[in-house]
């Protein structure tokens, strides 16, 4: 009887501390949100890089094959993101013979954290290049 009575009584000091802990928790929640968003942002950037590499590979493979050379990039790679991407092809003559073709893809980053630079000029943009030798037609 005595014990239960003591348990039920909460002093002002303990109450104050509990309030402070609640405040700390509430203040910590946005921080947790930012950390989780940053992790998701990292995952999105990695995915963009993987996509850019796959697109560059696919594009250069088509560009070096005689029959597919004139296909438009977005159709070739089957990736709608390529429509807003910067795609460049460079051809360089190999001194030992043949021509090397390099496809470079720059995809605009998906921005989840506000304030980060967007667009293909952003330092976070996914850049990938792939080089293959042109087939003799």
């Amino acid at each position: 009887m005595r014990r239960s009575g003591r348990r039920g009584v909460v002093g002002p000091a303990v109450r104050g501390q509990r309030g402070a802990e609640t405040l700390e928790l509430v203040a910590g929640l946005p921080l947790l949100g930012i950390v989780v968003t940053a992790l998701l942002q990292g995952a999105a950037l990695v995915e963009e890089h993987a996509r850019a590499a796959a697109d560059a590979r696919e594009l250069v493979r088509h560009r070096v094959v005689c029959d597919h050379r004139d296909a438009p990039p977005a159709v070739v790679a089957g990736d709608p993101a390529l429509r807003s991407a910067r795609v460049t092809f460079t051809r360089a003559a190999d001194p030992a013979g043949g021509t090397l073709v390099t496809a470079t893809v720059v995809l605009a980053p998906r921005i989840l954290l506000p304030g980060l630079p967007a667009g293909p000029e952003s330092p976070l943009a996914a850049r990938a290049a792939a080089t293959m030798r042109e087939e003799p037609c």
């Binding site: 590979r57 493979r61 070096v64 043949g98 792939a130 080089t131 293959m132 030798r133 087939e135 003799p136």
Partner: peptide, 15 residues
């Protein structure tokens, strides 16, 4: 990607 491109280059050279 590099392996595929290298093998293709060898085949293109042979062609």
């Amino acid at each position: 990607q590099a392996a595929a491109a290298a093998a293709h280059a060898a085949a293109a050279e042979l062609a």
